[in-house]
C-alpha cells in the first residue's frame, strides 16, 4: 500500500476507485477498526487533528469517539431508536447531565432532527431500531454519531445498500452536514462522488493516484489512469 492523503477540515473528501482497490481498508485504518480482525498489520502514519492515531498512548475508545464511522450496511444496534442515539454518550460520559431526564430527550431530538428523521419517528422512539427501513436505519446510524460531536466522520459506501431514492436522500443529508463535520466518503459510484464531495481522491490497486478538487478531477484528470477510470474503462 502506498497512500498519502491529506484531508481538509470541514469539507467532504470522496475516495473513489474500483472494487477491491483498498478504499475500505484505508478508511478503516483511520479509526483502527481494522485491528479487530487481529491479522491486520498497519504501517505508516495516520494523523487525526494533529495526533498520531497509532501512538501507543492513544486510547482507542477516545479515538473512535473523535472519528465516527458509517458502514456500508446500516447497522443500528438491536435496541430502541432512542437508546441508539444515546448509546455513545452513555458509554463515554455516563454521568453527563445531558443524559438526565428531559435533557436526554433534547439530545435525541436534536440528533434526529439533524438527520431529518425526527418527524418520522418522534412518536415511536421506543421501537426497535432494526424495525426501521434501510434508509431510516442509515440516517439513524449517522444521527447516533452526532451527540459525541466527532471531528471526523468516515463513511464507507453509505448508500450502496439503498435504493436510488434513499440514496438521494442520504446524499443530501451528507451534504447538509458539510461544514460542521469533516467527512471522508468512500464510494464506487462516480456520480455520487461528483455530486457530494468537495475534493476527490482516486485509488487504484492500493495506490493513491490523484487527489484534487472534485470538479477538476472529473473535468481535467492529470493522470491517464484516472481518466481511464472515470471514462469507465475499468472498475
Amino acid at each position: 500500500m502506498d497512500v498519502d492523503l491529506d484531508v481538509k477540515r470541514g469539507i467532504i473528501t470522496s475516495l473513489i476507485g474500483p472494487s477491491g482497490c483498498g478504499k475500505s481498508t484505508l478508511l478503516r485504518c483511520v479509526n483502527r477498526i481494522n485491528e479487530r480482525l487481529g491479522y491486520v498489520r498497519t504501517e505508516g502514519l495516520v494523523e487525526v487533528l494533529g495526533h498520531d492515531a497509532y501512538d501507543p498512548q492513544v486510547d482507542l475508545s477516545q479515538l473512535r469517539r473523535q472519528v465516527g464511522m458509517v458502514f456500508q450496511r446500516p447497522n443500528p444496534l438491536p435496541i430502541s431508536i432512542r437508546d441508539n442515539i444515546l448509546f455513545g454518550q452513555r458509554m463515554h460520559e455516563p454521568d453527563s447531565p445531558d443524559l438526565a431526564g428531559s435533557a436526554a430527550d433534547d439530545v435525541v431530538e436534536s440528533a434526529l432532527r439533524e438527520v431529518l428523521l425526527w418527524d418520522g419517528v418522534k412518536d415511536h422512539l421506543d421501537r426497535a431500531a432494526t424495525s426501521l427501513s434501510l434508509e431510516e436505519q442509515q440516517k439513524l446510524c449517522i444521527a447516533r454519531l452526532l451527540p459525541l460531536k466527532p471531528s471526523l466522520i468516515l463513511m464507507d459506501e453509505p448508500c450502496s445498500a439503498l435504493d436510488p431514492k434513499a440514496t438521494a436522500v442520504i446524499e443530501d443529508l451528507i451534504w447538509k452536514l458539510r461544514g460542521d463535520y469533516t467527512i471522508i466518503l468512500v464510494t464506487h459510484n462516480m456520480a455520487q462522488a461528483r455530486r457530494a464531495s468537495d475534493e476527490c481522491a482516486f485509488m487504484l490497486m492500493g495506490r493513491m493516484i490523484e487527489h484534487r478538487k472534485t470538479d477538476d478531477l472529473f473535468v481535467t484528470p492529470k493522470d491517464q489512469r484516472t481518466a481511464d477510470y472515470i471514462e469507465g474503462r475499468y472498475g
Binding site: 473512535r64 447497522n75 444496534l77 448509546f87 455513545g88 447516533r144 454519531l145
Partner: peptide, 13 residues
C-alpha cells in the same frame, strides 16, 4: 458481528 463492530466503532471497549 456487525453489532459488535458498530459498538466498537463508537468507542465501546
Amino acid at each position: 458481528d456487525r453489532y459488535r463492530e458498530a459498538a466498537e466503532a463508537m468507542g465501546a471497549t
